[in-house]
């Protein structure tokens, strides 16, 4: 099948969505399809320009393909008779972010027209699609709530599962992913006071130098700097995998995350239990307390107790880790299964 994967791009911005785009094209090819990727330049400011962005998408004419897989607003508005959406997110400033005052669309008559135009354009794109998948239950719920369209959840799988083979636990708890206030690595540093003897490794790129500095200062203030390793940089995948494979457990505490999170999947792929928080959103779709990890309130004492408990019983931690890998397999979170569903 000749498949075109379509998304948007903001020059020099590269994150999870861009990774997913690249790996989707790659894995389509691995599964024997002719696949190409195309990304439309996109900018959301000023809000008035969003209409032109949609218009550009609607104006694009495709030829020479069988299936179009579109990922993001407004790329999913490009017309094609055999179109499947895998919506990572809509233009959230016209939906849930608007409701909480986080939108660039002004609350004026013109702003309301722009809003209506976006919603009409979305409805048009959803209506003409053969199937709609989303990356997470929350995305599906929003689409149902705001647009009235049903969709199925198709979680993005790990891009390089072969790296996360698992291994002997070396006694540290690992916190991966971007470092910022929303990911709450600071809670883990504070929790160490309540987990005597437990070692913590924080490995990931800080969003800003201030984020890195704040974490270093906190470790000193808490008097746990001798038990914390702060490896604050973009960690190459092989290094990261080595750290995960040697961890006792992975701690991942985002606030109200949409998806499972790559950190969760990497941990489970390596058969490591995940420590998370009761308000971590999509992570809770797969992490079960005392089954494949720990789910505790976002309090240092509670987190510390959870960390200490796992550190004290490595065999139990290993059992939970294996249960995590089973949960991943049950979800079918692998590229062959995902590609199969997208080209079906």
């Amino acid at each position: 099948m000749r498949v075109l994967v379509l998304s948007t791009m903001v020059p020099f911005v590269h994150g999870g969505a861009e990774e997913l785009f690249d790996h989707l094209v790659l894995n389509l090819r691995r599964q024997g399809h002719d696949a190409e990727g195309m990304r439309l330049p996109f900018t959301w400011d000023p809000a008035e320009g969003l209409i032109e962005e949609m218009l550009i998408a609607r104006q694009i004419r495709l030829t020479n393909i069988d299936r179009l897989i579109a990922l993001k607003f407004p790329a999913y508005m490009v017309p094609w008779h055999d179109k499947v959406l895998w919506v990572l997110h809509q233009y959230r400033q016209a939906y849930d972010l608007l409701d909480v005052g986080g939108s660039n669309i002004p609350d004026t008559p013109r702003g309301r027209q722009i809003l209506a135009a976006i919603r009409a354009g979305d409805a048009q794109a959803f209506r003409e699609s053969k199937r709609i998948h989303t990356n997470a239950p929350i995305t599906s719920r929003r689409m149902k709530q705001y647009n009235g369209f049903d969709s199925s959840v198709l979680r993005p799988p790990l891009n390089d599962p072969e790296l996360f083979t698992g291994g002997e636990a070396e006694g540290y708890i690992l916190a991966t992913g971007r470092v910022n206030a929303g990911k709450r690595q600071s809670l883990l540093v504070r929790a160490l006071r309540h987990a005597p003897g437990v070692r913590l490794v924080v490995a990931g790129p800080p969003d800003t130098p201030a984020d890195a500095e704040a974490l270093r200062r906190l470790a000193v203030e808490e008097g746990v700097e001798d038990r914390v390793t702060l490896d604050l940089r973009f960690v190459p995948r092989t290094d990261l995998a080595r750290m995960v494979n040697g961890a006792l457990a992975v701690a991942y505490l985002p606030y109200d995350e949409d998806s499972l999170g790559y950190c969760t999947m990497e941990a489970f792929q390596a058969a490591k239990p995940v420590i998370t928080s009761t308000d971590s959103g999509g992570v809770l779709d797969i992490v079960r307390d005392r089954d494949n990890g720990r789910v505790v309130p976002p309090e240092p004492a509670e987190l510390g107790a959870a960390m200490a408990g796992l550190a004290a019983d490595a065999a139990r931690a290993a059992r939970m880790g294996r249960a995590g890998r089973d949960a991943m397999e049950a979800e079918g979170l692998d590229w062959p299964t995902t590609v199969e569903r997208l080209v079906a």
Binding site: I51, R58, Q59, Q113, A116, A117, I118, G121
Partner: peptide, 21 residues
């Protein structure tokens, strides 16, 4: 054609976006 696409977004012939297009 552009006006018709914009009409699909609920924007009429006198809308600024239609005039710009």
């Amino acid at each position: 054609r552009l006006a018709s696409l914009l009409e699909g977004f609920g924007l009429g012939p006198d809308d600024p976006a239609t005039r710009r297009a």
